[in-house]
Every structure is written in C-alpha cells, then in structure tokens.
Write a protein that binds this DNA or RNA. Structure first.
Lengths: 198, 198
DNA sequence: CGTTGAGTTCATCAGTTGATGAGTTTTTCG
DNA sequence: CGAAAAACTCATCAACTGATGAACTCAACG
C-alpha cells in the first residue's frame, strides 16, 4: 500500500547535532534570546533545515528538553533507604543530575521559565507531577500538608540550582557536592518530614 | 553666569510614569524581552521620549532599579533581637520587601539576571555586598565559614522569591507570610548559626 | 513681544528575528 | 537507469528591535 521508495529517513546524525546545539544555546541564553540562526550556525547547518526538522522554535525547544534524565529511575534512588536519610539522598541525586549532561537541559528550562510563560508552566508541571508527587506519595505524610511541603522543597532545590548554575554565586557554584549535601540535606529532610510550625 | 531662560526642567510626572512603566515591564518580561516601545506605550508617551530622558535601555534599567528599598534600613530590623530569632526575622523582612512596591524591582532584577550577564553581575554584587555581608559581620561566625553560610542563605531566599513571584508555584505563591516565616525561618537560622556538617 | 530651552513627537535607519516556499542535491529502491 | 522521497540550501518576507536627528509645542523669562 504505502510507497516505499526514496531516501531513507534514517539520519547521519544531523538531527542530533541540531538538538545538541539547541540544548547548549537554550541553556546559555534562555528560550527567547537563543536564535535559530545561532543554533544552526554551531550545528553547521542552514537555518531552514532546523525548521524542516522541527517545524517551529517551540517544537525545537520541546524536542531538546525531551528528557535526558528519567525521573522514573531517579526517584527510587531517593527513596531507597531509611526515612531519615531521604533529604540528603534527594540533594545528592539532584546535584548529580545537574552536573551531568542532562544538566544543560535543566539550566535551559530554568533560564527559559523565567521570561517565558509557557516554559514556566512546563517547569511547574514537571516539578509537581514528575518529581514532588512521586517522592511525597511514598512518605506517608499528612495529605493536607503535602502541597506545602512539596513546594517548600522546590524553593530550596530551585534556589540551589539557580545559585550554582545560573547566577553562579560563589562558593556554592564550585562547592564540593557532598559539602552541599551535608548543608542542604537537613533542610530538605525537615520540609519533607519535620515540623513546619514554630 | 548661567542662562536662566526657557521652560522649567520641573516635570509634570512624565518621567516618573516612564519609570513606573519600565519597572512593571522589566518585572513582567525581563530586561531583554521588555521593549522600549511597550514601556512608552503604557506610559502614554512617545518611544523617543524615553531615549531623550534616559539615553539608552541600559541606563533606563539602572534608573528603574535605583532602589525603592534601602538595605541600610532593612538590615537593622533583621539584627534587632536575640540571635536565635535572626532566621525568622530575615525571612519576615525579606517577604515584606517583595510584597511591597519595591518587590517589582526585585522581580525585574531576578528575571533579568537569568538571561543577561551584566544584570546577573548586578544581582550578585547586590546580594553579597549589600545584604549578606552586612548581616553576617554582625553575627560573629567563624570567618572561614562566612562565604559558604552566606551563599547558602542566598540559595534559600532566592529560591523562595523565584517560586513565589516568578514561577508562582502553589501553595507557596499565595501562602500567608507567617506560614513561610515559620517554615523557612529555621532553615535560614541553621545556615547562619547552626552546624553545617552531618 | 520674542528668545530660549525643555518637553514632546515624527519619520526613519539598520539590524535581527522566526518563518515560508521554491528549488537543488543526494540517497535509496524498483 | 530513472523515479521517488528525503536531506538540504537560497532568497525573501513581515515584524519587531534600539536608536537617531530633525522638527514642533509650549511655558518661563527678560
């Protein structure tokens, strides 16, 4: 039935090199400031080819974010162990992701979410549905406190990522991961399982 | 000596309305995405007039940021009281500033710092020289730990501001200030004066 | 009045952006 | 080979950006 002639859609890697360049550009400059021309440039490709593959800048961004780190694998590592260590393990896994290649996608998402409403929505939904919900539903905290505890954790984690990878405030920007685990772990632990009132 | 003729430089408020519009625009969209045309539009003014008053977009930004909240007055309010309450007082004062008119300048600075290197430098220097240094030098902590403690505080405070005013993650975005003071205060207290190792 | 100078507007420039559509090259298969 | 389809390029559009400089308006002063 279907026509089966012509050049095979299988790519010699051009598509991937565009995605790499896009991730780097979005991470460095944010969604709005990153230009398709610059992305095509560092990928060694005509700008129109980017549109040919991805249609629009929005779709390119989504494809570039589509996700180098799988929360489904990460969350169990946070939960594996005693309940009192979940805070430290969360910070440790979190820092590991941001220091990995997947981190550039995170920086891109973070940078973009700040001046672009639809990427902010993306970040919000990723945080709530992919990360916080999964962790918190395994910790049998009182359900009414769940959203507050979750978003408090988010304030500390996003603040940490902002200072370490975006604003780059020293010494947090270059600190040894385990130093930060020891310092920030207890904070996350208290937000998750501790008392929140004075 | 000086010529003293012509229309008086005293303004019918046009300059201020431009600054107000600029603060709002920078807060809502960040430095790059905010356009002089849009600012002039909401101020009810010709775009060229903005250049006439402020020269360039950079100078307009600096003028708009120039500063609705004075750290010199705020820091004493954080320090006034017992050493064990400094964390809660810091969060309380911090939230107060962000919920005031001065907060829009803060949001503008924060939004802009993310996709613009020179505004990031501005934010960094403001955090370190105007806020953290002043607070920490009054708390006689061990000098070697001072930078780390300071930047840890910054991660939590900036993360809080990000989630509450930029990403607007609920319920932190709409939470009662005192709820956040009770929840986050102990974190800041520990970063300032507590133990940082496991 | 008439000059002065600040307040204000208009027209316009040069640069960059995302996007489009027609056209060319290259690979694969019958 | 020769047709088909994908990979890729070129020229170009319309929109928007920050910025400039000449011009017009109007209040204050001598």
């Amino acid at each position: 039935m279907t026509r089966r002639t012509g050049r095979r859609p299988g790519n010699p890697g051009t598509r991937e090199s565009i995605l790499d360049a896009a991730r780097a550009a979005f991470a460095e400059r944010g969604f709005d400031a990153a230009s398709i021309r610059a992305i095509a440039g560092t990928a060694g490709v005509d700008p129109a080819l980017v549109h040919h593959y991805f249609g629009s800048k929005d779709q390119l961004f989504l494809a570039a974010m589509n996700f180098p780190a799988d929360p489904g694998q990460l969350v169990p590592r946070v939960l594996a162990g005693d309940r009192d260590g979940v805070g430290e393990r969360m910070v440790r896994v979190f820092l590991g992701v941001w220091d990995s290649p997947a981190g550039s996608a995170g920086v891109a998402l973070l940078r973009s979410a700040v001046s672009n409403e639809w990427t902010a929505r993306l970040l919000r939904e990723f945080i709530t549905t992919q990360v916080l919900r999964r962790v918190l539903e395994q910790l049998d905290v009182e359900p009414a406190q769940l959203p507050l505890r979750g978003s408090l954790v988010a304030t500390q984690m996003i603040g940490l990522a902002m200072m370490r990878h975006v604003v780059r405030l020293e010494p947090v920007a270059s600190a040894d991961p385990e130093t930060l685990v020891a310092a920030v772990g207890p904070t996350v632990q208290r937000y998750l399982t501790g008392s929140l009132s004075a």
